[in-house]
Structures are given as structure tokens and as C-alpha cells.
């Protein structure tokens, strides 16, 4: 059983090992185990970009709980990232509390807001639900702008973190650990009795209800788990990534980017959204830099749009989803009797 699992996960394990080992020299240097000025590889840049990918991958994984495993599409998901980021930023910068209190506040706030938004909106179907979530996120955005004595208004709140967190190598490893813990926890949830019910709801909501499952309660539950994880990603953003909380996090822009990551990588696959997060974050960082080559790259979002359209048209199950289907069909073709 265990061996089978490891075999199935060999790619994930290989990538994890690689990511763990790459900045090892830096880790040793950062903690005074070897002379610091002897190590300038990998560059700070690699660490920063990777940490950013890890954090957004967590958001994408949390989004996959909704879109992939429960079948609900929210346009307000990044509201929870904003809630997490502001919780820790306000706790530390405005109230002078420890970041740990900020983390707790983030969990509680994102859970409460998930339950409220979920209970008010999940009774609505399909695009009505999507519209309501968008509206809630917009309310969050406006509040973040207006309550400027708490949120810093348009400028946002910069977070002064403890010294050991101001170190990019430590941030990198924390981000990687964070992603790994969330990834395996979420995967476990999808394989739990609850996860199976969520899949049933995705497949056929009315049938699930006729079997005696309280569909609304399960959906609110899924939204809460997903919202808390997104909130934690917000905390990570404000402490180890950008070290910043900004109102625009709650707009539809970041949510659409996360939708893109999930769809391109493969809805309902968990590894897909991680891969999608890496692709989209790195592209949206690299593409604007290509403006010297062609002014077309000033409109770099266009390329993300093309990738989206291309995926939907040619790989409707996303990269990982299509890969899996292909392997499975090949397998079935060989082994199905008759």
C-alpha cells in the first residue's frame, strides 16, 4: 500500500527533493554553518520567485477544492487571501502583536467569513453564486480601501517581520514546507469520507441530497476549508513573500489568475494547480521583461489569455488531467479483456 503510494508519487517526491536540495548551500550559509560570502548560488532571485510560486500554488490548491472537488466556481476566492494578509499585517503593525497571533486571527477571520459568505450565497446556483462571491470580494476590496487607518488604504500595509523571516532562504524553505503540508493535507481530505461526498455533489447534487447528504452544509464546509487555506496563503504572502497586504488582493484579478492556474494545470488533480501556479506566476513575471524584444509583451496578459483559450480548446482536462487520461486510456486499452 505504502510502496504503491510512493511509486505513484515518484514525480512529486522527485520535484520536492530537487526543491529541497537546490538552495541547501544558502541554508547552511544563512545559519552560519558555512561562510556566508562563499555562497551566492542560487541567486536571491530564484528564492524570491520560488517562494512566490509556493504561496500561489497553495491558493490554487485551495481553489481546486472548490472547482475540482466540489464543483463550485467562486469569483471571490482571493478575498480570503486578502483577509489572511490583512489579519497578520494589522495584528503585527497596528496592534503590535506577535505574528503568531496574526496567524490565529487569520484562521478565525477567514473561517468566519467563509461560513457567512458560503451560507448566504451557496443556496444560489451556478453563475448566480459566482456573481454573489464576486460582490462579496468587492465589498472586501472597498472596505480595505476605506478603513485606511487600519489597512493603510491605497498604500496597503507593509509588514515588518522578525529578522529570521527577513531571510530569503528561510522564507523559501518555509514556503516549500507550507505548500507540502497543505498539498498532502488537501489530498488526504479529498480521500476522506467528506471528500467522497464532495465528489458526489460535484457529480450530481440532487442525487447526493436524495441519499441524505446535507448538500449545503457540505458546500459551506468545503468553502470554509478552502477559505482558511487561502487565508493562510495570505498570511504567508504578508510574512515570507511580498511582506505586504494590499487591497487589490481582494479584486477579481487575482481570483481569475488562480482560476487560470487551476484550469491550465488540470481541475481536480491538485498537482495540476501547483504546476499551473508555477507556469502562470513565472510567465507573468517574465513576460513584461520581454518588452525590449517586442512591444507586444507590454500586453503580456494577452499571452495568459491565449494559454487559457488553448488549454480549454486542446487540453480540456488541463495539462495534468490530460496526461492522466491518456495514461489511463492506454492502460485500459492494453488490459481490458475483450
Amino acid at each position: 500500500m505504502m510502496l504503491k503510494r510512493i511509486k505513484a508519487d515518484r514525480w512529486i517526491i522527485a520535484v520536492l527533493l530537487l526543491l529541497l536540495l537546490l538552495p541547501l548551500p544558502k541554508l547552511l550559509a544563512a545559519n552560519g554553518l558555512i561562510a556566508a560570502d562563499a555562497v551566492n548560488w542560487p541567486p536571491i532571485h530564484y528564492l524570491k520567485r520560488s517562494t512566490d510560486v509556493f504561496v500561489w500554488a497553495v491558493v490554487a490548491v485551495s481553489y481546486d477544492i472548490l472547482i475540482g472537488f466540489t464543483g463550485i466556481v467562486s469569483f471571490g476566492h482571493s478575498l480570503f487571501v486578502a483577509v489572511g494578509a490583512y489579519s497578520v499585517a494589522i495584528a503585527v503593525m497596528k496592534l503590535g502583536l506577535s505574528p503568531v497571533v496574526g496567524v490565529l486571527a487569520a484562521v478565525i477571520a477567514s473561517a468566519l467569513i467563509s461560513v457567512v459568505v458560503g451560507s448566504l450565497s451557496l443556496r444560489l446556483k451556478g453563475h448566480y453564486f459566482a456573481m454573489i462571491t464576486l460582490a462579496f470580494a468587492e465589498v472586501g476590496h472597498v472596505l480595505a480601501l476605506k478603513l485606511s487607518q487600519w489597512t493603510g488604504g491605497e498604500d496597503g500595509l507593509s509588514v515588518r517581520v522578525p529578522l529570521w523571516l527577513a531571510n530569503r532562504t528561510n522564507d523559501y524553505y518555509l514556503g516549500l514546507l507550507f505548500l507540502a503540508v497543505i498539498f498532502f493535507t488537501v489530498r488526504r481530505i479529498t480521500e476522506s469520507p467528506t471528500g467522497r461526498v464532495l465528489a458526489a455533489i460535484r457529480e450530481n447534487e440532487h442525487r447526493a441530497q436524495a441519499l441524505g447528504y446535507d448538500v449545503t452544509a457540505y458546500k459551506v464546509g468545503a468553502m470554509t476549508i478552502s477559505g482558511v487555506i487561502a487565508g493562510l496563503a495570505g498570511v504567508a504572502m504578508a510574512t515570507i513573500d511580498t511582506q505586504f497586504a494590499i487591497a487589490s488582493l481582494a479584486t477579481s484579478g487575482p481570483t481569475i489568475e488562480v482560476l487560470l492556474m487551476t484550469v491550465v494545470g488540470g481541475v481536480g488533480t491538485l498537482t495540476g494547480p501547483v504546476l499551473g501556479a508555477a507556469m502562470i506566476r513565472l510567465l507573468s513575471f517574465a513576460l513584461p521583461g520581454l518588452q525590449d524584444i517586442s512591444p507586444l509583451f507590454a500586453r503580456w496578459q494577452l499571452f495568459l489569455g491565449l494559454i487559457y483559450v488553448g488549454t480549454v480548446m486542446f487540453l480540456p482536462d488541463g495539462i495534468v488531467g490530460s496526461y492522466r487520461t491518456r495514461v489511463k486510456t492506454a492502460f485500459q486499452r492494453i488490459f481490458t479483456p475483450g
Binding site: I189, S192, P193, V197, A208, G221
Partner: peptide, 16 residues
């Protein structure tokens, strides 16, 4: 899933 619906384990999201 139909069998599971009669046991109250549906909310155990950390069990397998």
C-alpha cells in the same frame, strides 16, 4: 456513497 450516507462519518474530513 449510498452505504456511507447511513453512517455518520460524512463530516470526518481527516479520516481515510
Amino acid at each position: 456513497l449510498a452505504v456511507q450516507s447511513r453512517a455518520s462519518v460524512g463530516y470526518r474530513f481527516l479520516a481515510l
